[in-house]
Simulated assay, not measured.
Amino acid sequence: MIPKVNEIKVSYKQRIPARQWPKIEHSRDAAALLHQTWDHDTIALYETFKVIILNNGNRVKAIMELSHGGMTGAIVDVRLLFGIVLKVAGTAIILAHNHPSGTLKPSQPDRQITEKIRKAGAILDIRLLDHILLVPDGNHYSFADEGIL
């Protein structure tokens, strides 16, 4: 008798040619793209955590919302994050979340989750290029620009 087991299927449907994907060359590029795609009705209300997934040429394959939380925090499941990145064959990521308060200073939990994700990515050979903090007025803070990454 053959035991019954679940089947796993991995697929990725590329609907936009890679040459049309936005290219990220600087934190300003990432912040501008994020501000364009963020829900402006909620950016001042609650925290949302997203990841930009890039190919080896720093072209954006996808932007994925991982979670949204309360006014002062959002939970990030690192396993879910890397499960998604691996599924779409990403080679680099940029983390992003908003601070509804308008504060452009990363908190200690912001620094801790960034380091945890950086270490996990290193094991998987997925580069963490930046962590961008967005505020409702359109400004941003870049971990990479500030020398934290």
Rank of each mutant, 00 (worst) to 15 (best):
H99P: 05
E47G: 02
K105R: 15
N98A: 05
Q112R: 03
V51F: 07
L81N: 05
A62C: 12
I43T: 06
H35L: 15
L66M: 11
P100G: 06
Q108A: 13
I63V: 14
K105E: 14
K116A: 15
N98C: 07
T91I: 11
G57L: 14
L104T: 01
I52T: 06
H68R: 07
G83A: 04
A62G: 09
P100A: 02
V85P: 00
I126L: 13
F82K: 00
I94V: 14
A96N: 12
D39P: 07
Q112F: 01
K119G: 01
G83W: 00
G70D: 12
R59W: 07
G121E: 00
A120K: 07
G70L: 11
V88S: 11
H97Y: 08
L45G: 11
K116E: 13
G102H: 06
K87F: 05
N55Y: 06
L95G: 01
H97C: 11
M64L: 14
E115M: 13
D110W: 06
D110R: 10
G83E: 01
P109N: 15
F49I: 05
K105D: 11
I53D: 04
S67H: 05
L95H: 04
S107M: 05
S101W: 04
D125Q: 13
I43R: 01
P106N: 07
T37W: 09
H40K: 09
P106L: 02
H40C: 10
G102E: 08
G90Y: 00
G69S: 10
V76H: 05
E65S: 09
H68I: 15
D110N: 09
A89G: 09
P106T: 02
T114I: 03
I113E: 06
L95E: 01
L104I: 06
A74H: 06
L66P: 14
A96D: 04
T48D: 11
Q108G: 08
I123Y: 09
K105T: 11
I63L: 08
N56W: 08
K119H: 09
V88Y: 04
A62W: 07
A89P: 02
T72A: 15
E47P: 01
A74E: 03
L45H: 08
D77S: 14
V60E: 14
I84E: 12
D125A: 14
H68L: 13
Q112D: 05
N56R: 10
A74T: 02
I93E: 01
I84F: 15
G121D: 00
I117L: 09
K50H: 11
H35I: 10
I53V: 15
G73E: 09
G69W: 04
F49V: 03
L66T: 05
V51W: 03
K87Y: 04
Q36G: 12
N58G: 09
T48L: 06
T42F: 11
N98L: 03
R79V: 11
F82A: 00
A96C: 15
R118A: 08
